[in-house]
């Protein structure tokens, strides 16, 4: 490597005084070295440090401190692993963890399946699909809060249209309070969530589908692959990267955002829909215990990182 400007210059011609002090020459020289790349990256690296890494680290250190806003008397000392120890014996934490797993797995599974079906339907370019696409994507444009309140009303045990319909169709004997019964609260919330977010998958998968050449399906037709085989052996493998990205994004979204559950159930009845994000939110903003909330968030962060890592491994997306 030739990073020493003197040596290069010396070999070609003698240096004049101006050459020695000319700043442009040094920059020019520098731009020839491999440091230049890092130099160019520096501003954005600093920005990332400031905007991403610093707050993340701040959240981490918070989890090792006492920080209860409504208890200034306790101070803000370091408490080492106190919060993490508490978590081990905290029933609500474990319930929330389990509920989070159920919530995320079920929601992503349904959202992906429905999203895929919708994307496949829209990809057929039949007449009317343009209009249909707008309708299918509509839920996604509703803010979580609006979707939540809308469904809370539709599922209302007194005025809800859904109960009305189910009773009229004969599927239900009488009006049901979906969110008051622990055996249906989670399922109902998952359905609302899936309704709201499946277009996310539709959108991404549709973009992926558009990229698959139609010749592949013709070839598969001739090769004798039926539609299920085509889906399994051609479509899905070709969407692998898109699916992986979409699933990871959606899982992160589902793990981190409590707002829909906050509106629909607030974690109830009992703890039956309590999830980690909601628990952390409540710990911070109802109990003002930011230290413990910080610890909960660190755990969520670690779990998400692990999930993303394992998932990328298993789905082998970065192999080809």
């Amino acid at each position: 490597m030739t990073s020493n400007p003197q040596s290069i210059m010396a070999s070609s011609r003698p240096l004049s005084t101006w050459d020695r002090i000319n700043p442009a020459r040094y920059i020019g020289e520098l731009s020839e070295t491999r440091f230049w790349m890092y130099l160019l990256l520096l501003p954005s690296a600093l920005l990332i440090m400031g905007v991403v890494i610093y707050p993340t680290l701040y959240g981490f250190q918070l989890s090792f401190r006492e920080m209860r806003l409504n208890r200034p008397d306790l101070g803000t000392d370091w408490v080492l692993l106190k919060h993490y120890q508490r978590m081990l014996s905290d029933q609500i934490f474990w319930i929330s963890l389990r509920n989070t797993a159920v919530w995320v797995t079920a929601a992503v599974t349904i959202e992906f399946s429905v999203g895929l079906i919708a994307a496949l339907a829209l990809n057929r370019n039949l007449p009317g699909t343009k209009v249909l696409a707008v309708f299918i994507l509509l839920p996604f444009f509703l803010p979580n809060v609006v979707a939540g309140h809308m469904w809370a009303l539709m599922l209302d045990p007194r005025l809800g249209v859904i109960n009305d319909l189910l009773v009229k169709v004969g599927l239900l004997g009488g009006y049901k309070a979906w969110f008051a019964d622990p055996s249906t609260a989670m399922a109902a919330a998952i359905i609302v969530e899936a309704w709201h977010s499946f277009p996310f998958f539709t959108l991404l998968l549709l973009a992926g589908l558009k990229g698959i050449p139609t010749d592949l399906y013709k070839a598969a037709d001739i090769d004798g692959a039926g539609s299920i085989s085509q889906l399994r052996l051609i479509t899905l493998p070709m969407l692998k990267t898109v699916i992986a990205a979409a699933v990871i994004l959606r899982v992160i979204g589902l793990v981190n955002s409590p707002d829909l559950l906050l509106i629909l159930t607030s974690g109830g009845p009992g703890r039956s829909t309590q999830v980690l994000s909601l628990y952390a939110f409540q710990t911070a903003y109802k109990d003002f215990n930011f230290g413990y909330a910080g610890a909960l968030s660190v755990i969520m962060f670690i779990l998400l990182m692990m999930f993303a890592w394992v998932y990328v491994r298993l789905s082998k997306v970065n192999q080809d």
Binding site: P213, D215, L216, K218, A219, A220, D221, I222, D223, G224, A225, L233, I234
Partner: peptide, 16 residues
């Protein structure tokens, strides 16, 4: 197509 006992080579090759 699969029962016509034909084989086709596409301009794009259409390899999977």
């Amino acid at each position: 197509p699969k029962d016509r006992n034909i084989a086709m080579v596409f301009q794009s090759y259409a390899l999977y």
